[in-house]
């Protein structure tokens, strides 16, 4: 989880990833940020993220992102 938050802070520094659960709903992460995160997550965790996964439920919080990563790692 700490590694994931580091990735997020590197891409979009102006957010509180420990507590925020509306990263998409509040427009904190735009499509550029989302794809940058996807690119880093794919490299860091050796996973493949498809367009079907790009839904607000998977990107609204660091926790949701972490759960998606774990699910894709199988």
């Amino acid at each position: 989880m700490d590694e994931l938050i580091e990735i997020l802070e590197d891409i979009q520094p102006d957010a509180d990833y420990e507590t925020c659960t509306t990263l998409i709903d509040d427009g904190i992460l735009d499509s550029f940020a989302i794809l940058s995160i996807v690119s880093e997550l794919e490299d860091a965790y050796d996973i493949r993220i498809t367009p079907a996964e790009i839904i607000p439920e998977n990107f609204n919080s660091a926790k949701a992102l972490y759960e998606m990563v774990q699910r894709l790692q199988g």
Binding site: G27, D30, S31, F32, L35, V38, I49, T50, P51, I54
Partner: peptide, 25 residues
């Protein structure tokens, strides 16, 4: 970018979800 989030929003979100993400990924 902000303009396209406010102008013809449904075309913008359509392009994002069904073209931009699939091409990028």
């Amino acid at each position: 970018t902000d303009f396209w989030h406010r102008w013809h929003i449904t075309l913008g979100t359509w392009m994002k979800d069904y073209l931009f993400y699939p091409i990028s990924l």
